[in-house]
């Protein structure tokens, strides 16, 4: 019995192959965003996830995407897609088209896919901490079996909302999993220059919340740690904090020259690329060949170009009449008083 439980904590071969494909898709998607941004097809700020793919994929794979609630910061495209939001709708949103998941009103930092329970990307560092606790409170009040997973970077932990939310989450035993994607930099400032305690999982112990720190580049390790974390939260034991050590290949955003990181450091991390590591393992185990991988890559590149980019390019802009449409909820009956239009 015990052995069976243990086994379920490991990724199956089928899962590994699928995750490789999903992570590669995420990488190619983000890199294509880079190009579109340079071509000025995408406006505003753009924060790319390349290098960190194992974090979102390993954790969300261990949960129930589409049923469990997920939210994150402005580096949000990949989390949304992993939750089931159509990549076409994400790209169209980046292109500010009416077919975008937020009709072109959100943008890169505000991807939402509420049908898929992706509850948003938020642009204020640390802003989602209390929102996640609140979603967990909502689950608790509705007596649901879901959990809420909140992904944020290490630098968010220097906001007051980190402490306020961990305190309340533990106090009220809320079903929330906080995932810290520790990429070692808060915008351009290295963690040891901004943060007195660099191991983020240690900071959580002050709130009596269980926490772990694992390698965020290895999707198998992330998955295994996340299975335990998710089980803990779902079983009613309250919040959990999972710290994943990772690295972003690009700057904080596209307006970041990325000059603050030594090349030697970047190499250490790119040598442990989450996609290449998983690929090489599968090749070594003779579950796939390099040719298979290249074929997969080409198919993905083709799909992104012929489906995703095409859709975004060809979609119309939102009409001007939409400008004021979602400021307040339209025609809410209670605004007029009476009995809300019903008797």
């Amino acid at each position: 019995m015990n052995a069976k439980v243990q086994a379920s904590k490991k990724l199956s071969l089928e899962q590994k192959k699928r995750l490789l494909e999903e992570m590669l898709f995420a990488r190619r998607f983000e890199e294509r965003c880079y190009e579109a941004y340079v071509e000025r097809k995408i406006g505003g700020f753009l924060h790319l996830y390349s290098g960190e793919e194992a974090c979102a994929h390993g954790v969300i794979e261990a949960a129930n995407p589409g049923s469990d609630y997920v939210l994150t910061s402005y580096r949000d495209h990949v989390h949304a897609i992993k939750c089931g939001v159509d990549p076409k709708a994400v790209m169209a949103e980046l292109y500010a088209k009416v077919t975008g998941c937020c009709k072109g009103l959100g943008g890169s930092m505000h991807i939402f896919g509420v049908e898929n329970r992706f509850m948003g990307g938020y642009a204020l560092v640390g802003g989602p901490f209390p929102l996640a606790a609140g979603i967990a409170k909502g689950i608790q009040m509705k007596k649901g079996k879901e959990i809420c997973i909140c992904f944020l970077g290490d630098a968010a932990n220097n906001q007051g909302t980190f402490h306020e939310s961990l305190n309340m989450a533990k106090l009220w035993n809320l079903p929330v999993l906080y995932v810290c994607e520790n990429n070692l930099y808060g915008i351009g400032t290295r963690i040891d220059r901004s943060t007195a305690v660099v191991d983020q999982y240690k900071r959580v112990s002050a709130y009596n919340i269980p926490s772990t720190q694992v390698d965020g580049q290895d999707v198998e390790i992330v998955y295994e740690a996340a299975v335990e974390a998710v089980e803990h939260v779902r079983s009613g034991k309250g919040p959990y904090f999972l710290e994943l050590m990772t690295y972003r290949y690009r700057g904080h955003s596209m307006s970041d020259s990325n000059a603050y990181r030594p090349k030697s450091e970047e190499r250490i991390w790119s040598d442990r690329d989450p996609i290449i590591m998983l690929r090489d393992r599968l090749v070594e185990a003779k579950e796939m060949t390099i040719e298979d991988y290249k074929k997969m890559d080409n198919q993905i590149l083709d799909q992104i170009e012929s489906e995703v980019i095409k859709f975004a390019e060809e979609s119309p802009e939102p009409p001007l009449e939409m400008l004021e449409k979602y400021v307040l909820v339209e025609n809410d009956p209670w605004v007029k008083g009476g009995r809300g239009g019903v008797n």
Partner: peptide, 26 residues
């Protein structure tokens, strides 16, 4: 206590928590 909640003195935190709960129809 679950419906009449004494909060810690964390105004931004509990306001955000309320907003998150409202997303789910609370």
């Amino acid at each position: 206590p679950e419906r009449v909640m004494d909060t810690p003195i964390s105004e931004n935190g509990y306001t955000g928590l309320g907003i998150g709960a409202s997303y789910l129809g609370c």
